[in-house]
Design a protein around this nucleic acid. Structure first.
Lengths: 106, 106
DNA sequence: TTAATATGCAACCATTTGGTTGCATGTCAA
DNA sequence: TTGACATGCAACCAAATGGTTGCATATTAA
């Protein structure tokens, strides 16, 4: 479960929109997801493939349809492992920066 | 402060490495940052420009050197505004998915 | 069985991205 | 002042990205 794939997947606004769509209604089929997107089905398919690769979306084949489910776990892991460490020192870094900025050119 | 720029900036492993480097030692000059990167100074400059555009890095010109400072605020905002909502329903979504997966083909 | 529906695969294309090289500019120190 | 050092700018290039079109396959329903 590479962090790189998750970050890369989240970088595209269309893919974030797809996640939002699944967040609003989980288990949508490809066609359902396409309806709200202003691009061809094949383009959406590619985006979904990238989301699947990042483990952000899981699919189940049900007959001729394919249901898509949001998997929030990788996002949670990013928040905990990577973003958390910056948050932790947010105020420290801010006050640091402020001090630096206030100390004018010597 | 566009969320898109932040996500895009975070998508590249080199840029995350730069943030890590600044997290370890804040206020490094361009040359200092380049030393640990296996690419030309100009390539690093471009990455830093993208990080600046996303407001993740702030710089101060000090004489002929340029100091780079980590700004964790945008990351914090992402965590709060966007990632938070997926985290919140993490368990719900998981159990949802489990149920779906367990209910075999009808 | 057959037509409609849902998805999959592959080739193709324009643009963006990540990197390079070469040269210019600005600042410090001898 | 002059040479060394730190950074800036621009042209260029290969590869990745995001999108398209066209056709193939599989499933449902009449």
């Amino acid at each position: 479960m590479s962090m790189d794939a998750v970050f890369r997947a989240l970088a595209d606004p269309t893919r974030r929109q797809l996640l939002d769509s699944l967040y609003a209604r989980n288990g949508q089929t490809l066609n359902a997801l396409c309806e709200r997107m202003d691009m061809t089905r094949q383009a959406v398919t590619k985006h979904l493939a990238i989301l699947e690769e990042a483990n952000l979306v899981t699919t189940i084949r049900r007959g001729r349809e394919k249901e898509h489910y949001l998997n929030p776990v990788p996002i949670n892991e990013i928040a905990e492992r990577w973003i958390g460490k910056f948050e932790r020192h947010r105020l420290d870094a801010l006050s640091d920066m402020k001090k630096r900025l206030e100390r004018e050119e010597p």
